[in-house]
Simulated assay, not measured.
Amino acid sequence: MDFPNGDIFVGEIIGTAILVLFGVGVCAAVNLHHSKARAAGWVVISFGWGFGVLAGAYTAGPLSGGHINPAVSVAIATTDDGSWAKLPLYIVSQMIGAVIGAVLAWLVYYSQFRANGDEDKAQGTLGNFATIPEVRNPAANVATEAIATAALILPLLAFGMTEGLGEHGTQTLIVSLLVVGIGLSLGGPTGYAINPARDLGPRIAHHLLPIPNKGTSDWGYSWVPVAGPILGALIGAGIFQLAF
């Protein structure tokens, strides 16, 4: 479906902002002091991100198709020659939306970020915004992100060929559950970016926001959750084209 440029710009900003608002919000809810969801755990985080995909994609869908992820946009462009021309617009819009969503989540948890800074000066806050690997090994971390993203892209593209799955928005619901599953099964090593905008936008926001004792934004790692998902998108789209 060919979406107007203006609709793509608005839709992807809004949809990605909602995704990141939910995602950064659930990380802050689980990790920060004086939050009622404190220490709720990884399962809650995985579902929070999945519901963020659900809300963001459903909202953006009528305007832009609801990509809300540069890896998804790259995969669609790879399998649809007509999409390459609009790929830069999708990615720029998604990045803007991701920064906005991260700022909104910071505003929601403003008091908690301040309390976190006052009470635990040794604890950084980047993990609420962007991904941090449990074991820092760039090659392994890229491989993890590439495999996890391919595990998103290949089913997502195949879902589009399943008769009736796109009716009444069912496909978006299934994709959001797929994201939850990836988080639960494949998210342990790196925190599963599987979306360059989801990581880089909030990382930029973390760098710019006046968060007490926020710690480093870890720019040395920032290329991994960008390169890994893009590589995974190309792999997933390539397998789809070969198999289907």
Rank of each mutant, 00 (worst) to 15 (best):
106 W>Q: 03
170 T>D: 05
183 G>W: 01
233 A>G: 15
137 N>Q: 10
233 A>P: 01
215 G>N: 05
239 I>T: 14
94 Q>V: 04
70 P>N: 15
210 P>T: 04
180 V>H: 05
141 N>E: 14
180 V>A: 06
216 T>N: 14
147 I>T: 14
59 T>N: 09
243 A>M: 13
59 T>R: 05
51 F>Q: 03
47 F>I: 14
106 W>G: 01
28 A>V: 00
232 G>H: 10
117 G>F: 06
164 G>C: 12
25 G>S: 09
146 A>H: 09
95 M>N: 06
242 L>I: 15
220 G>E: 10
191 G>K: 11
217 S>N: 08
12 E>C: 11
64 S>M: 11
154 L>N: 01
73 S>H: 02
170 T>Y: 12
192 Y>F: 15
239 I>P: 02
210 P>I: 02
216 T>L: 11
64 S>V: 12
12 E>A: 11
180 V>K: 07
65 G>H: 12
236 G>Y: 08
180 V>P: 03
71 A>F: 10
38 R>L: 14
198 R>H: 13
170 T>Q: 12
51 F>P: 00
215 G>Y: 03
95 M>Y: 07
174 I>D: 08
16 T>E: 04
70 P>F: 13
154 L>G: 01
192 Y>R: 07
194 I>W: 13
187 G>L: 04
97 G>R: 02
58 Y>S: 14
213 N>H: 10
66 G>H: 03
156 L>N: 03
35 S>V: 11
77 A>D: 01
125 T>R: 07
55 A>W: 01
18 I>G: 01
183 G>I: 00
55 A>T: 01
22 F>H: 00
24 V>K: 03
25 G>R: 02
135 V>A: 10
12 E>P: 08
124 G>C: 09
183 G>Y: 02
53 V>Y: 03
162 T>P: 00
203 R>D: 08
69 N>R: 12
74 V>T: 10
54 L>W: 01
232 G>N: 11
85 A>H: 03
